[in-house]
Design a protein around this nucleic acid. Structure first.
Lengths: 342, 342
DNA sequence: TTGAAAGCGATACCAT
DNA sequence: ATGGTATCGCTTTCAA
């Protein structure tokens, strides 16, 4: 039999209204009664019933999080960040996995919407229209995607690609391949855009770099395995993959075919999942701030909830990406000796 | 403005009680009214408010899941299985991560308990007493651990180890090392027990196998890296690790030191995480049925909830483990040639 | 078979 | 500053 607000009221010798006030806004009651109430509550181990509170306030104290695939090591990091931040704000987090299926995603949003005050969708796979529709039904924050004025947290993919290209070009690479992920992935499009921008900027700088786009492939290990042979056939000296899982697949296939990395070909991934540092050779990767992305997502959502009703605050946060150089990238096989460089 | 039961009642021309009945137990109302009510509900898109329902029924429709570390690829599999099963039963899942900290675990259980009908704790790190206490506060199911009569889903670790040892012995290994995980881990103790049993059984069979226990180490990549040198110094020809993350650490360090796997030393992990097949050489691992474990956990919990109040049903399920042989295990370096075998 | 009404636990408004 | 009370949306007696 859980202790209710009545029990506390009786114990403190006040009315339930007073208890409610003493606990919610300490400045609404006299210091003396506040003291008594708080002690009584503590002694009885009183915990407000969230369902009852939600019934009248219209708030559940829950937020939802939807991710495409928990098995992709990128997302647990995001989940951790979200939970940490949500807990600080006294919110609980529902997590749901869509198995990369846009239809499941749409269904889950609708189902979850009733049970939460708002939700965060990480790397949404559904269409822009569907997202816009969802945003009208429930406060919504997007991670790794921008759609209209829906609040979002993104990473500077374009700059990440700039760093990767600069690194490769400095190593003497002139023929670079990119292994595409899902076309429905906003990040994929952004990365491709960043890549093209970086390469044309390089052209202005004098170096003549050629980009070969391969794909699209599954954003998983298997996708990389499949892409590896195409990369070799394309004659590139370096490959940048949509994400680390794909890069790991590339690495694996190259090793299996006896192709030396980075001796014959360099590989760069994206996300910097833990496994990137665990393979041999360790994978150079564009690190995205996973936990920070999660935290920022909750931050935006909380801001949204506070302003709910008032003029739609549309907020965006863009986080920086950082290239983690490891041993999977090295000098281009046909690169001129350092002394020959201009 | 969400549609409530009143709206449905008005639309169907009946009282709210009738609506409630028509939707809950169709046999409680006349077929005609049931039909009308259901159509009205469908047309209005009525979704019962779970908070309101929970207030009176005392049920939230939520279940909680606590895991030590979402970043350990073993757990996302479990989470996926749980969610799938929970969704079938129309339950939502709260997920919380403890960062392997027993204290956090205890705190989370207490906090979550108020918001759920029951909870599942995967690989609990807290003490038996704490678990027993938790079990009295809320319906509880344990994954990968057995404590008293608390319902649990476990994997047959002992048999898994038997398979691993049999595999190694067949390859000619006689000096085997085990890298321990956390001493607070039930699975660790079970695996050690299974290992010892398998080895003494082998002794009865004539082969004289020696076990060297190393550790304990962090159940992570870094733990394996640290353990690798000890394994080499101990002169074992094969190492079995507490889990795949540790095994990957071993593998990595062996390669870094120029020690050939499996030429000079064989490595076996546990869990069969996806990364196991992604490294080079691919890791032989004892596969645990991750999703099935999650599903079974929810099954047990649902059964518990149904019987709540009645005599404590204590149930256990034990799932089988399967050795996945890959290239990280091979003949022992000093093994006699196949023709010399008896 | 159906309707009216009493709560579930908390908050918020209206008095005092 | 505090108490009484209506109320949130729903389920569940109790009568009819």
């Amino acid at each position: 039999m859980p202790v209710t607000i009545k029990d506390v009221a009786r114990a403190a010798g006040v009315s339930v209204s007073t208890v409610s006030r003493a606990l919610a806004g300490p400045e609404l009651v006299s210091p003396a009664t506040r003291e008594r109430v708080q002690r009584a509550a503590a002694e009885l181990g009183y915990q407000p019933n969230r369902a009852a509170r939600g019934l009248i306030t219209g708030r559940t104290g829950n937020i939802g999080l939807i991710v495409p695939d928990l098995a992709n090591p990128f997302f647990p990091g995001v989940v951790k960040g979200m939970q940490a931040r949500a807990r600080e704000a006294d919110f609980a987090v529902f997590v749901a996995d869509t198995d990369e299926d846009p239809a499941v995603e749409v269904a889950l949003v609708r189902q979850l919407a009733k049970q939460v005050d708002g939700m965060v969708i990480a790397s949404p796979r559904m269409s822009e229209d569907e997202l816009r529709a969802a945003a009208t039904e429930t406060p919504l924050v997007l991670l790794n995607r921008r759609v209209g004025r829906i609040p979002s947290v993104t990473v500077d993919n374009v700059d990440g690609m700039r760093q990767a290209v600069a690194h490769l070009v400095a190593l003497g690479h002139r023929r670079i391949g990119y292994v595409e992920g899902p076309r429905t992935s906003w990040a994929n499009r952004e990365r491709l855009r960043g890549l093209r921008a970086a390469i044309s900027a390089t052209a202005d700088g004098g170096a003549d770099v050629e980009l070969t786009v391969l794909g699209s492939f599954l954003p998983q290990f298997e996708g990389g395995v499949a892409a590896a042979d195409l990369a070799v056939a394309a004659g590139v000296t370096a490959v940048i993959a949509y994400n680390d899982l794909v890069a790991l697949g590339l690495l694996n296939r190259f090793v299996a075919r006896g192709i030396d990395v980075p001796g014959q070909i360099s590989v760069i991934g994206c996300d910097d999942i833990v496994a990137a540092a665990m393979v041999h050779p360790p994978l150079t990767s564009i690190a995205l701030p996973k936990e920070q992305t999660g935290r920022a997502g909750v931050d935006l959502l909380l801001a949204l909830l506070k302003n709910s009703g008032r003029s739609a605050v549309s907020t965006r946060r863009e986080l920086p990406a950082h290239l983690m150089v490891r041993r999977s990238t090295g000098p281009a096989p046909t690169a001129p000796a350092p002394t020959d460089l201009p």
